[in-house]
Design a binder for these strands. Structure first.
Lengths: 340, 340
DNA sequence: GTGAAAGCGCTAACAG
DNA sequence: CTGTTAGCGCTTTCAC
């Protein structure tokens, strides 16, 4: 218990040189005698020698097998599942994922990013819709650490995994239109980012194509991006007179449903609600939430795979982008428009 | 873009020695001329010099301001909230929390623990009910890294934050008894750990004291510790004939409620359900979940504070234990027993 | 005011 | 088969 055992201690005790110990312990010791090897191994076990990580990575730079994962908020189911996807491939590849949850605060994101740089991680998965490429490069001190982007602005550069948010918006609109709704609302968010913009654009344009009016002045409401955010918007939603609401994501939808219920509004009889993401929760709320499915876990897997690829082939083609499909999952929170 | 700028580069460019640069950059440069200082600062900004973390911690061991947080599963709301608590104080204290989510796999827990040791973190928060003190010490290579335990076996040694699980079980029983229930069930988990044992003990003994029968053969069912686990147990719960169920935690309760609903059983009219933890979700499900409240966020804060204290005063009193209160939150998932 | 030198714990040529 | 030497990037005496 206590003081750290160094490679030198082991060497001294074994009566050999430091090199020998190092080599043997790193499996490069074929050339040493069996006796020596065993002696060293025994000593290592006995004193529970663990090589110093920092000393090690000081020399073998870049090969530490650590990746950083920056998410807005681990405690959201969406990012929790995403991280699980990352972890799955990380484990296969013997990578250690360092998870940073920045609480949606740009300053913290920046800080964590810098931390990761200092710790010379091998690569980075950034799931933040807020940061611009510029901010990222800034935080990365213009070093060429491979990173991949997720859930964020399309116009940025960089390798990334994408889902078609525009199409997701279309699917939501088509579903609601097919159910006969004409008064529809998009419950967006205050700090709008590109992915949400796209969802709304797909939604809006599909509706407008049916010669049904939808414009930002009358059919757009803004909530905080959370369950509570959705909850708070129940009254405004009711007052809007809409019969169907498409929300920025499932968290907002679940909050909204709670609010509606407390106001005595029935879902879907009075108002249909459709969310976005397909988080696990959707099947556990009542009524079960109709939503646009994103393959969240797979996104985590995909992001990690692309990153790995970038790490292993730094000189490869410039920007790798992988597309993942979205689809409609019709459950119980949407129904025929009853207002005729 | 590219190659890393070292302190030597800066020194060379400034025409001074490495020492000077180091001193100036670490704020210990009062003794240097203003000109020199400014020159160095300028160069640092210009080349975006960031000191190498590993080189640094190799020398100044132990003062890196990093703590490790090992949780079973970040994507569970409970641990997500807990981690947020940790982060709050971490940020105030300028600590970087490294989050590891071990997916409830002992092997992974062990592996991550070893990783943290290698990276010479300053301290450790272990939220795993599975690992024994022995396993932990083993993974920690018997080094004296301060750590604190959470959500786990009481009989273990070590500083920790605790809530009174036994009392929580009592509260649940009292609540159900007051509602007139006599046929009660504890929906426990397969891999039982001390915290769950305690909950059940408090529950069971309170009930037995009323001369109502409750024994493990008839009144205990075991589920996987997850929403799906609870969901799967709906049928057995119904078949048991119980009018009230106390679940191991809220996740299980929420899953169970979904299962019951799908089987056409009403909550609370037919069966009352009471959970444990008071996760955020409880207010968003329908009916809102009655539960035993644990101050999850505060537990995270408390754990971190104790750890910090241990780090800063390694020689202090042996084991610090902080107790946090639990309380009953009566919502809508429990009601009067209708079976008379 | 400033710098030379030592060394943190480790690995990797290169000699023997 | 094994050891010597050099050095990763940085901080820290201590001498000039």
């Amino acid at each position: 218990m206590g003081k750290k055992v160094t490679i030198r201690d082991i060497a001294r005790m074994a009566g050999v040189s430091v090199t020998t110990v190092s080599q043997v312990l790193n499996g490069k010791g074929k050339r040493f005698s069996k006796t020596t090897r065993e002696k060293i191994m025994k000593l290592r076990d006995q004193y529970q020698y663990v090589p110093d990580f920092h000393a090690r990575s000081l020399i073998m730079k870049g090969s530490i097998n650590t990746i950083g994962v920056l998410v807005p908020n681990v405690s959201e189911s969406f990012f929790g599942t995403f991280v699980e996807g990352v972890q799955q491939v990380a484990r296969q590849e013997k990578l250690i994922p360092l998870i940073f949850s920045a609480n949606r605060e740009p300053k913290l994101e920046q800080e964590y990013l810098e931390q990761m740089v200092e710790r010379s991680i091998d690569g980075l998965i950034i799931a933040s819709a807020r940061m611009t490429t510029e901010m990222i490069n800034q935080a990365l001190s213009n070093r060429d650490i491979p990173y991949i982007l997720f859930d964020r602005n399309y116009d940025q550069q960089g390798a990334r995994v994408l889902t078609d948010d525009y199409h997701g918006g279309q699917l939501a609109a088509q579903h609601l239109l097919a159910l006969g709704h004409t008064k529809m609302l998009f419950l967006g968010v205050k700090n709008i980012t590109e992915n949400f913009k796209q969802r709304m654009a797909g939604f809006q344009e599909t509706i407008n194509a049916q010669e049904i009016n939808f414009d930002e002045d009358h059919n757009l409401l803004k909530a905080d991006l959370s369950k509570d955010g959705g909850y708070q918007m129940a009254r405004p939603v009711i007052e809007s007179g809409a019969t169907a609401v498409f929300t920025a994501n499932d968290e907002v939808a679940i909050g909204l449903m709670r609010g509606l219920r407390e106001q005595g509004v029935r879902v879907p009889e009075d108002i249909s609600v459709i969310g976005y993401d397909d988080i696990i929760l959707d099947e556990y709320v009542y009524p079960q939430l109709t939503t646009i499915h994103q393959p969240i876990f797979k996104l985590g897997v995909g992001a990690t795979e692309i990153l790995l690829n970038k790490i292993n082939h730094p000189d490869a083609e410039p920007e790798q982008v992988e597309h993942f499909p979205v689809k409609l999952i019709a459950r119980q929170s949407t129904g025929k428009c009853q207002q005729n």
